[in-house]
């Protein structure tokens, strides 16, 4: 197992409530796990705890056999890569330069990127169908293209564990499907372990081996999609009436229409 969270509790300094409460999760090579839940249910906190940037208040987090907080950050970046929800573009850079940042954990101090690093950048761009974007400025790329470059940067880290935090937010159907297909292919072919945080319940159900459903920081269900994503559970967690229909033997959620309370103003 490459990532193992065992009964983890986590709380941000100065807050009253646990951001994560009693969450367990195991991910092995060749496995894609989706983490679902409404806004504020602790999905991004789970990423922070898993990668050791937020220490759990109770429970244990183990990445590749070592406690997440015990890793040297550079060494951890060679094992686990994260595509974060947001990043800043303080200074303009080209796609190729941005992907090269993924090689930093592998570079010896003070050394320039070596031939192998340039090759790794090329390979990563190619794997994400982004080689043609290599010399473009990041800010001139569309949302879907930027995500491909950021995924390429994560691959350039040559990780065993890939974590994506809402990678398809603001992407259209084509780019959304492409991204999920690409991640699924990486998991199957390269035996990567992947954790995808997403709001796309239906895509999670179709692409993931297992799902973890979070509600206010606590697990509301964990396991194969067809066991976790039942009508009762999903309605309770997302606080909206839904119907579930099977497609490809996977549960698919259809939100129902509901009249809002009449506006009397």
């Amino acid at each position: 197992m490459i990532l193992a969270l065992d009964h983890v509790h986590a709380r941000y300094p100065g807050t009253e409530r646990d951001a994560l409460a009693d969450v367990s999760l195991g991910v092995s090579p060749g496995e894609l796990v989706a983490v679902l839940g409404p806004n504020g249910s602790g999905k991004t906190t789970l990423v922070r705890v898993a990668l050791g940037t937020l220490a759990p208040t109770a429970g244990s987090v183990v990445v590749a056999g070592r406690g997440a907080g015990e890793w040297d950050r550079r060494a951890l970046a060679r094992v686990a890569a994260v595509v974060t929800q947001r990043e800043e573009m303080t200074f303009p850079q080209r796609a190729r330069e941005s992907v090269m940042l993924g090689r930093y954990p592998h570079l010896p101090p003070f050394a320039a990127p070596r031939r192998a690093d340039h090759q790794a950048v090329r390979d990563a761009l190619e794997a994400c169908d982004a080689l043609g974007l290599a010399d473009r400025w990041l800010e001139t790329l569309s949302g879907g293209e930027q995500q491909r470059v950021r995924l390429a940067r994560a691959l350039a880290q040559e990780p065993q564990l890939l974590v994506l935090d809402e990678p398809t937010a603001s992407l259209d159907v084509k780019h959304e499907m492409e991204l999920f297909e690409r991640v699924r292919a990486l998991v199957d072919r390269r035996k990567l372990a992947a954790v995808v945080i997403t709001h796309q319940v239906n895509l999670a159900a179709r692409f993931a081996d297992r799902v973890l459903l979070l509600s206010r920081g606590a697990p509301a269900g964990s396991g194969p999609a067809r066991e976790v994503l039942t009508r009762e559970t999903v309605e309770r967690v997302f606080e909206w009436p839904i119907a579930i229909q099977a497609f490809d033997d996977r549960p698919q959620m259809i939100p129902l229409r509901r009249e809002l309370p009449t506006d009397r103003s």
């Binding site: 922070r48 990668l51 940037t53 950050r73 550079r74 060494a75 951890l76 970046a77 060679r78 686990a80 890569a81 994260v82 974060t84 947001r86 990043e87 800043e88 573009m89 303080t90 200074f91 940042l101 993924g102 930093y104 954990p105 570079l107 101090p109 003070f110 880290q157």
Partner: peptide
């Protein structure tokens, strides 16, 4: 400052992405 050159490159992305790319 010279020793911090690489982490400074990473920190242009923001604190969180930088730490996931190996910067303390």
């Amino acid at each position: 400052l010279v020793a911090a050159a690489r982490p400074l490159d990473l920190m242009a992305l923001g604190d969180e992405p930088a730490s996931y790319l190996g910067a303390d």
